[in-house]
Amino acid sequence: MKVTNEFLIPFLGLKLGKHQFEYQINKAFFDHFEYDEFDSSAIKVNLVLDKQSTMLELNFKHSGTINVPCDVTNEMFDLPIKGKLKLIVRFGEKFNDENEELLILPFGEHQVDVSQYIYEMIVLSIPLKRVSPGAKDKKALEKLNNIEVKDEQEVKEEEIDPRWAALKKLLTDK
C-alpha cells in the first residue's frame, strides 16, 4: 500500500493530551490494499490520540455501511458495520508490530501511519455470513408456505411399517 499523507500523523509537534482525527473511508481506500470483497463503502473513522510523555494511546472507532451481495439471495444490499480498536505506541530500539495491541516505533520517529490499522479494524468487523434483512423474511415465508398440515390419522398410518400392519391384523382377528 502506498502511504498517503492523510493517514500519517506527525505526533512530534503535538502537545501532550488528547487530539481527535476523523477519516472518511470509501472504496478507493480498500483498492490501495487490493481488497475487493464489496462494491462500495461509506465508513466514518474517529481516532482519538492521547499523547503522553513516554507513549501514545490510539483509540479507533468506526461505523458505516458497505455494499455487499447477500449470501442467500445474491442481491446487493448495504450492510451496517461498526467496531473499535485500541493501540498503544511505545518507543524502542527497533520497529516491532508483532503484537496487535502494541506498536513499537524506533527512537527518533516523528510520525505514525494508521492506515493499516484502520484497514484491519474495518475488515475484521465485516461478518462472515452476510444476509440481507429482506432475505430473512423471504426465507421464513417460504418455509411456512411449504409446511402442510396433516391429520393425526394420516401421520399414524404413514408411520406404520407394512410388516407391523400384518402383525396387528393377527391381533384383531381373535
Results as ranks from 00 to 15, higher is better:
2 K>S: 08
2 K>R: 07
4 T>M: 02
8 L>M: 12
9 I>S: 02
10 P>Q: 11
12 L>T: 10
13 G>E: 13
14 L>G: 10
16 L>S: 10
16 L>I: 14
16 L>G: 05
17 G>K: 06
19 H>C: 08
19 H>R: 03
20 Q>R: 14
24 Q>K: 11
27 K>Q: 15
29 F>V: 01
29 F>H: 03
31 D>N: 10
33 F>E: 04
34 E>T: 06
34 E>G: 03
36 D>N: 14
36 D>L: 07
37 E>N: 13
39 D>S: 15
40 S>T: 13
42 A>R: 12
44 K>G: 06
47 L>T: 07
49 L>R: 03
51 K>F: 02
53 S>V: 14
56 L>P: 00
57 E>Y: 13
61 K>I: 01
62 H>A: 14
63 S>P: 00
65 T>G: 06
67 N>V: 04
68 V>P: 02
70 C>I: 09
72 V>K: 08
79 L>N: 08
82 K>Q: 11
83 G>R: 05
87 L>C: 08
89 V>L: 01
90 R>H: 10
90 R>A: 11
91 F>Q: 05
91 F>V: 02
92 G>F: 05
93 E>G: 04
97 D>G: 10
98 E>Y: 04
99 N>H: 13
106 P>S: 13
107 F>S: 09
108 G>F: 04
109 E>A: 15
111 Q>T: 12
112 V>F: 10
112 V>P: 03
113 D>V: 06
115 S>A: 15
119 Y>V: 01
121 M>V: 00
121 M>R: 02
124 L>N: 14
125 S>Q: 08
127 P>L: 06
132 S>F: 02
132 S>Y: 01
134 G>K: 14
136 K>F: 14
136 K>N: 07
140 A>N: 09
144 L>W: 03
147 I>M: 12
148 E>V: 09
156 K>V: 12
159 E>H: 04
162 P>F: 04
164 W>R: 09
168 K>D: 11
171 L>R: 13
172 T>M: 01
172 T>Y: 02
173 D>G: 06
173 D>R: 10
